[in-house]
């Protein structure tokens, strides 16, 4: 077996070790990086900036802990941006296991920004129903959410008394790791014309671009890069910015491995032909 054959058939544990090191080292050394801001991310920032103070931003938590490292920084940055602009935040979700992540983020950001539960934000919690709920709250929120996640009637919160359906929502944000964002766009956006922005995992982001190109959504936060770019725009670096160097090195390693593997493959093939 020649050198290139050996390289092409390297033990997978070596690859695992290389990847682990390339991700761990930047997380330990924490180098500071800047990321390019795409039009898709700028669209999200502009959509929030365009809302007048007091508008309602509805954030749907459609992800669970498996996607939290990518999507949770988006939620934190969005909350920070919305609170800074004095927007009212309503949180709900289609995944029961995702809602505590919203609570964790709200309990982190709200005290920092001097925001109060019920006055500035409300967590409506989880209801089953998926697409039925999306269509149903287009008629009246109270058909599905008469109370918040702790069982407190939503009409006991002053700003919620004015919120009845999508006409009272300035911006709908779907933070999703699956197809729920598509449903929001198709059911809430298509039928009720509510402005939508989407935050999703890097894997799901490509499927959102046709909606962006068609003007059905205002912007996309795609993966850790989207979250880091948004953090950069709101000038508050969080965990996404900290994670970007690790992702950067990881991608660099994969590209290097692809080049090495393919050089080995081409040389072996040429030798075989001879």
């Amino acid at each position: 077996m020649n050198f290139w054959n050996r390289i092409a058939n390297v033990d997978r544990r070596v690859l695992y070790l290389l990847l682990a090191l390339s991700v761990a080292l930047p997380l330990i050394t924490k180098p500071r990086t800047t990321v390019p801001v795409s039009e898709a991310v700028k669209g999200v920032y502009d959509a929030v900036e365009a809302l007048p103070a007091g508008s309602v931003v509805m954030i749907s938590i459609d992800y669970d802990p498996s996607s939290a490292p990518e999507v949770q920084p988006m939620l934190i940055a969005l909350l920070r941006h919305s609170f800074r602009r004095n927007l009212r935040v309503v949180v709900m979700g289609h995944l029961a296991l995702g809602l505590p992540l919203a609570d964790i983020a709200l309990n982190q950001v709200a005290p920092e920004m001097d925001k109060e539960y019920g006055r500035d934000y409300v967590n409506l919690g989880y209801r089953p129903g998926s697409t039925a709920l999306m269509v149903g709250i287009g008629r009246e929120f109270r058909d599905y959410f008469q109370t918040d996640y702790r069982g407190v009637p939503i009409d006991s919160f002053e700003f919620m008394r004015r919120v009845h359906n999508y006409r009272d929502v300035g911006l709908l944000v779907s933070l999703a790791h699956g197809t729920v964002a598509d449903y929001w766009i198709q059911y809430a956006g298509g039928r009720f014309n509510v402005p939508i922005i989407v935050g999703c995992t890097g894997v799901s982001a490509p499927s959102m671009y046709p909606y962006l190109r068609a003007g059905q959504i205002k912007g996309i936060l795609g993966g850790l890069l989207g979250a880091a770019a948004y953090e950069q725009l709101i000038e508050h670096r969080g965990s996404a910015s900290l994670g970007m160097p690790a992702q950067s090195w990881g991608h660099g390693l994969i590209i290097a491995l692809l080049i090495i593997g393919n050089v080995g493959f081409l040389l072996s093939r040429r030798k075989g032909k001879k």
């Binding site: 092409a8 390297v10 690859l15 593997g261 393919n262």
Partner: peptide, 21 residues
């Protein structure tokens, strides 16, 4: 859940190295 999702990266690297030709 995070570990399950993150472990995908290792399999992707291994698969890409061997199969992406």
């Amino acid at each position: 859940q995070s570990t399950m999702f993150a472990s995908l990266a290792f399999f992707i690297v291994s698969a890409a190295y061997r199969a992406f030709r």
